[in-house]
């Protein structure tokens, strides 16, 4: 059970959070201009890396804010958390 440092509330138990999949996938501004393949790339394709992964998390039973997390999926170490719209602080 992780301890997650919500950028708005501080350190809280994982059970207060919800994972929301890969981060930094921006919804296309002009979906109608996209081919089926391009749209499918946005809609379906996710990396699911073993190692450093950028993820979206939501403090659903807390401040309800979405934020980003850098997590090493091989050992569950959280490398960083940062607000939506911010640049990842680690590579």
């Amino acid at each position: 059970m992780f301890l997650i440092n919500c950028p708005f509330c501080g350190e809280r138990e994982q059970s207060e959070f919800k994972a929301g999949g890969e981060a930094h996938i921006v919804r296309p501004k002009q979906p109608t201009e996209l081919s089926d393949d391009e749209w499918a790339e946005y809609l379906f394709m996710r990396k699911n890396i073993k190692g450093i992964q950028f993820e979206r998390w939501n403090h659903v039973h807390g401040c309800r804010k979405w934020f980003n997390m850098v997590r090493d999926t091989s050992n569950d170490q959280i490398k960083a958390v940062y607000k939506m719209g911010e640049k990842p602080p680690v590579k």
């Binding site: 919800k18 921006v26 919804r27 979206r56 309800r64 804010k65 979405w66 939506m84 719209g85």
Partner: peptide
């Protein structure tokens, strides 16, 4: 509610 909040916070802030 969760879905609406998600779009508001992440896609259309």
């Amino acid at each position: 509610l969760g879905k609406l909040e998600d779009y508001l916070q992440t896609e259309w802030p």
